[in-house]
Simulated assay, not measured.
Amino acid sequence: MPKFVLCLLALSLLLVGCGGPRLSVDPDWKDAPKNFHVIASAPYVANADDLTDDFRDENSFRRWFATYLDSSLTEYSVAKPSVKIVDDAVFSTGLLKLGDEFAKFPLPEVEKLEGIGGVVIAVHPVRFWRDATPCPNGGCIGGKHLNVMMSYTIVAVEDMRVLAYGVARVNDSFTFAMTRGNWESVIKGAAKQLLEDTPLKK
């Protein structure tokens, strides 16, 4: 598992465990642009079989993920998004303070991207996995969940001013088998969290 993903997991556990803040927004950021870019790394899915059950293959899932994230952000934002899946190499990392802790967050290397300007949401990494709530003594059917977690920053790329950053984490429950509806639910929830407390949110 990539080192950055392990760091994201550790940060998420820290925030959940201590009840710390999930995001930070520059209080001087008041106005939303007319449009914004979203660059996201290719999503990592812990169980590859989950992809073949609901999508044909990894490439089909990546295309669907970008399209559905775009439509979800469109639904919840006052501005028009444009979502693009990019290589991990276009991200660097910045050490930013969240609550009482410092953690690494993704920053776009704009010189490696064409046609990207204005406000950019950099999302890296993107990780999906499933887990289950333990059932005491095996006397019931434990609850199952699809999870998604994303580390992100929102940057004004002209001067590389960091406008907001945080960790989006969402889960959706199912009983027996996952459906496409579970994937849709967690992406919608993550889209809301990417925009939370910012001028971009409706």
Rank of each mutant, 00 (worst) to 15 (best):
L51F: 04
V86F: 04
V90D: 01
D50A: 06
F91P: 00
F65H: 00
I85L: 15
K97C: 11
G143A: 13
S24M: 12
S60Q: 12
S151F: 00
L73R: 09
N59L: 14
P81W: 02
G94V: 10
G143C: 05
A103T: 06
I116W: 11
E114A: 13
V38C: 03
L13I: 03
D31C: 11
V148H: 03
P108E: 06
D57I: 10
C135I: 06
V126K: 00
T93S: 12
W129E: 03
E58T: 14
I85H: 04
D100G: 11
E114S: 15
G17M: 00
G118C: 08
F91V: 01
I141K: 03
G138Q: 11
F65E: 01
A89P: 02
T133C: 08
V110W: 00
Y44N: 08
D54Y: 10
S151N: 06
K112I: 02
G17I: 06
D54C: 05
M149F: 02
N35K: 15
K104M: 10
S82T: 13
K30L: 15
K30M: 15
D31K: 11
I141E: 08
P106F: 02
P106G: 04
S82Q: 11
L23P: 08
Y44M: 13
T52D: 06
D87T: 13
P134K: 12
L73A: 02
D88P: 03
V83A: 07
T133G: 05
F91D: 03
A48H: 15
A66H: 10
F61G: 04
G115C: 09
R63A: 12
N59S: 14
C140T: 10
V16I: 09
V119W: 03
L95A: 07
F36H: 08
G99H: 02
R130W: 08
L51M: 08
V25E: 09
R56W: 05
V83E: 10
P43G: 07
L15K: 06
H37V: 06
V16S: 12
L113D: 01
V38F: 06
F128D: 00
Y68H: 13
S151W: 01
A122T: 06
G17C: 11
S24F: 08
E101H: 07
L14F: 00
H37S: 14
G143Y: 08
Y68F: 11
P136K: 11
S72Y: 10
M149R: 13
Y44H: 14
L146P: 03
K104F: 05
L107F: 04
A48S: 15
A132E: 15
G19H: 09
P108D: 01
F61P: 01
Y68S: 11
F128C: 03
G118K: 08
V148Y: 01
L14K: 07
K80L: 13
L98C: 11
V126E: 04
P33G: 09
R63Q: 12
K144P: 02
I141F: 13
H37E: 10
T52W: 04
